[in-house]
Design a protein around this nucleic acid. Sequence first.
DNA 1: GCTTCATGTAACTTCGTTTATTACGATTTA
DNA 2: TAAATCGTAATAAACGAAGTTACATGAAGC
Lengths: 146, 146
Amino acid sequence: MKRDSRLSSVLHALLHMAEQNEPMTSEQLAACMCTNPVVVRRTMGLLRDAGLVTSERGPSGGWTIAADLEAVTLRDLHEALGEPSIFAIGNRNENPGCLVELAVNAALDGAFADAEALLLDRFAKVTLARLSADFNRRHAAHRARS
Amino acid sequence: MKRDSRLSSVLHALLHMAEQNEPMTSEQLAACMCTNPVVVRRTMGLLRDAGLVTSERGPSGGWTIAADLEAVTLRDLHEALGEPSIFAIGNRNENPGCLVELAVNAALDGAFADAEALLLDRFAKVTLARLSADFNRRHAAHRARS
DNA sequence: GCTTCATGTAACTTCGTTTATTACGATTTA
DNA sequence: TAAATCGTAATAAACGAAGTTACATGAAGC
Ligand code: FES
Ligand code: FES
């Protein structure tokens, strides 16, 4: 199955934007991430709907972070993206008609629910600020090496 | 996204087979699960490669469980199926060329790895015997009600 | 041996989802 | 008004899972 990589994408975009004082255009972000400006607008549009970024039209327009980096977590971003389903594995039939399926689904669903809860919990503990700091640490180390 | 439902499928098949003394044909299993005999063979073939079931050709042939129900766990089945990737969400670029991607991937990968570990751990704790018992319990309750 | 039943497997199609692309409209700045 | 930029709909491309078709292989029974 094709994986949804939008969470990864918006994180990229946000980290770039966090290093910048001016708005960044869809074009810039797209070039940087090897994708298409329209894709950037579509995805960032969801973050705008959630109040995490703002967009301005016209010359000198573009995308700007509108939230506190300390407050925004990966979980917030996941929710802003519409909480896409997390698993690539699932039940054959979600509304079972027979007892065999009921028993199987019960066993699998419990495990999946627990794993999802753990993942979302981990997401909730990572802020954009922490990610940005992590990036800057790596950046400094990289410059020191070269 | 289209989810991989093979784990769910083989569980269905195995529970049916556990209730049966004779081999079951691909045709029977397919009819029971509303799918195609060839799909059944493809999937069950992986379990056969793992030594969990056997297949016999010709008249009176079919599929038979070859392992101890107490010993086989969901994790064994997951492995027999080739350990398909569990998540429908992932990194945009698994082999990052820039430090932004490195930082993002590190954050996400850690969370995904932990969730995967938890899920596999849960899988390892569920045996076919337990599932079969669960089914029989439900079956008895169902008969008592009607 | 011949027929029948069943698996083994390759090739192809269908279907659903994600991402990319095209096209055009709306808004802002100069 | 011209240029830059987002907003959005419509469409195509790319991909993977499941389904389907077709035929080969092997076993059982006569
Ligand atoms: S995504 Fe911007 S440099 Fe890597
Ligand atoms: S009766 Fe539900 S799968 Fe067999």
